[in-house]
Design a protein around this nucleic acid. Structure first.
Lengths: 133, 133
DNA sequence: CCGCCGTTCTGCCCTGGGCAGAACGGCGGG
DNA sequence: CCCGCCGTTCTGCCCAGGGCAGAACGGCGG
């Protein structure tokens, strides 16, 4: 099961300004969703555990909303992890975006895609954020 | 030159709930200040570069305000770095907090303090966030 | 069809982001 | 002493948006 989502319009609109990396809320949300889906947790139950509404969690995961630090902590707690791990993973994600971006001209990721492997990739700027289950 | 700042009251008030780590805005702000001071940049000029007010930057660095993702990006840009690096450093900081916390009973950090070495430590919960120039 | 999932929409309350102006205190230098 | 610079806090303000509830939508599998 591969979920495909696109960067938010705001991220795309900044392409003209040569913005090389996603915004915090985008990287955060993307990573939160990855963690949640990897743990086979539904959006609804995670939201309930975190004490927030499902629609709000949906928007956070999609980078549409800017959660407060307390909200981040609540979600992190509901996912049974820590802010340390989260920030580390977000950083890795962002670094991977840059790596993929740098290797674009080599067709590197194209090769990987054509290989049909399960991917856990995060890309941005006219690319697709792919999430592998 | 050692600047000493204390965790925000909100972080202290959560001690009773056994919160093991700082909030995102606290870790973020602390790290931003470390970066800025290491680069010998003043708060005022950094704020100007970022296009925000100095008082606002002050509050962000002190974990008092929750900056939007765009603000984070602006500050990061003003510091001449990237969100990748920032999140990695924040994660390291948070991990260090845990390490120090775990080694508390061994008096490890006491030994280091008594050695008079320049420290770049981040601690929380009834401890002091020490920033070495 | 149904139920479950996630998403989007609408409308809302009210919090707080972010600012400007002012004042404060610390520090170093003349 | 004064001054300038630094960072912080305070006050007051505008308004953006956090976060929600209810509703509706679309996708998917049984």
């Amino acid at each position: 099961m591969v979920t495909v989502s696109r960067p938010s319009p705001s991220a795309l609109s900044r392409a003209g300004k040569r913005r090389p990396e996603p915004l915090w809320r985008e990287a955060l949300g993307n990573r939160l969703r990855l963690i949640r889906t990897h743990r086979r947790l539904t959006l609804a139950e995670t939201a309930e555990r975190a004490g927030i509404s499902p629609q709000y969690l949906s928007e956070i995961e999609r980078g549409r909303k800017e959660p407060s630090s307390e909200m981040i902590a609540a979600i992190v707690g509901a996912l049974g992890m820590s802010l340390v791990d989260l920030t580390a993973l977000v950083s890795d994600d962002l670094r991977r975006v840059q790596v993929v971006d740098l290797s674009r001209s080599t067709g590197h990721e194209r090769g990987a895609a054509s290989a049909g492997r399960d991917l856990d990739r995060t890309v941005v700027e006219n690319r697709v954020w792919l999430v592998a289950a």
